[in-house]
Every structure is written in structure tokens, then in C-alpha cells.
Amino acid sequence: MCYNFIEEIVRVHKNEESGRLMANFIDFQDVSKIYKSGEVEIKALADASFSVMEGEFCVIVGASGAGKTTILNILGGIDRATTGRIHLGEREISALSENELTLYRRTDVGFVFQFYNLIQNLTALENVEITTEMGIDPLDPTQVLGKVGLAHRIDNFPAQLSGGEQQRVSIARALAKNPKLLLCDEPTGALDDDTGRHILQLLHDTCKESGTTVVLITHNSVIAEVADRVIHVKNGAITSTELIENPKAISEIDW
């Protein structure tokens, strides 16, 4: 108890120390994740600690199986850490119950998937409406779709859209609920360069314009160049966290 209190003080103190006005938004503290498969134990994440400030565009980079998806899952509340604590703002996600986690995902987190994960028999608009139906402070789905540049395709079914368009719908779906945190799992992974770039731009713009914190995972280190903060993951451990003072514009990076 006492220890917790001290830690809390330390955490707040750290924020002040960083000198930024923004509060320490995401806070990973000694988070480990161990998958048990029969006799075999696989340590997907070992004592990972990092923090992300509110409104940051954070990119987690690492090779396949490095543990970056585990971080995203735990952060998104769709998986639980074996040990360690995760805070989002004032809330300790690692202490939430199953139902609270559901509510957390429902209201606070927006997900963008590598494979879009759109509901096939819903139109673009309806796919976005899914979230607004349950969101606490939803945005207007048509407007959001307009913002992602799909105003003309709102009545199309996913199968009628290109990959990039589908990903835009996916982003619109995530944004429509006006999330505090936008989690993107290789959002450009299934897209060609050009489209990927557009999507990245869209995510970046969203981050900067609406102040939504974006955490994006990718194995493509080039993307890291546009981030405010880059976290490198390797073999389940965080090897380094770097803050980039002047991130490159997306148009500048070489894909």
C-alpha cells in the first residue's frame, strides 16, 4: 500500500520532471506477459516499462514476435498482463474487471486493425455506426467518414471498397467514438506504399488535430521517423525509448 503510494508520487514527479505540460498519459510499469501452453512457458513481454504523453503519436517498432502486439493488446484491454501495472490517465487498466475492460474498450479506445476487420454485411456508414451506437460521446458517423475522405462511399459494402478505403472506414469507426487512445495494429501492413502513406497521414493528422493519443505498432522502422516517441521492442523487452524532437513529415519519409 505504502509502496503504491510512493510509486504514485514518483510517477507524478516524473511527469513534472519531463518538463512538458502534457501529463504522463500511458504508463507501463514492469509489465510482463507469460503465455502458458501446456508445459511450455513463453515470455512474450518481460518487465516492460514505458510511458506515453497525452496527444503523442507513438510508434512501437519491433520484429515479428518481439512483443509489440502483446503491448498493444494489453494496452487496448483485450489481453491482461501477467504482472505489472498499466495506467491510462488516472485509471489503472491492469486492475479493471472484465466488464470494466469492456467498458474501457467501448469508450476510451479506438482500434485500427491490420486487416480492417469490418463487418462485411454492413455498409461503410453502418460499420461506423456500430461504435457510435454504443459510444458515450459519439461523433456523427457521416462527418467522420467525410473526414477520412469517404463521403462518397458511405453506402458501399466493404467488399466494394479497396484496401485503403476499408482501412479508412476502420479508422473512421475507431474515431467516431472520439476515443482517448487510438491503437493501430500495423495499419499499413496490408496496404501498398502509397495507400499506406495516406493512411498514416490520416492517423497523424487525427493525432495532431484532435489531440488523440495514437499508439501504432509496426515492424517498419521507417514509420517511426514520423513519431513523437518511438519505442523499440526486441525479444519481449523494451530496448529503448526515444523522443523525437522534430519528427519528419510523412511525405518526407522513404517508405
Binding site: 487496448g76 483485450i78 466488464n99 469492456t102 474498450r105 467501448r106 479506445v109 482500434f111 486493425f113 476487420n117
Partner: peptide
């Protein structure tokens, strides 16, 4: 998959 996605999107039980 659809169900998993809906779960991620925060669908309650």
C-alpha cells in the same frame, strides 16, 4: 472473427 472484432470494439456480453 466478427465476434472477436466486436469484442475489441467494446461490445458487452
Amino acid at each position: 472473427r466478427e465476434i472477436a472484432t466486436l469484442k475489441v470494439l467494446g461490445y458487452k456480453k
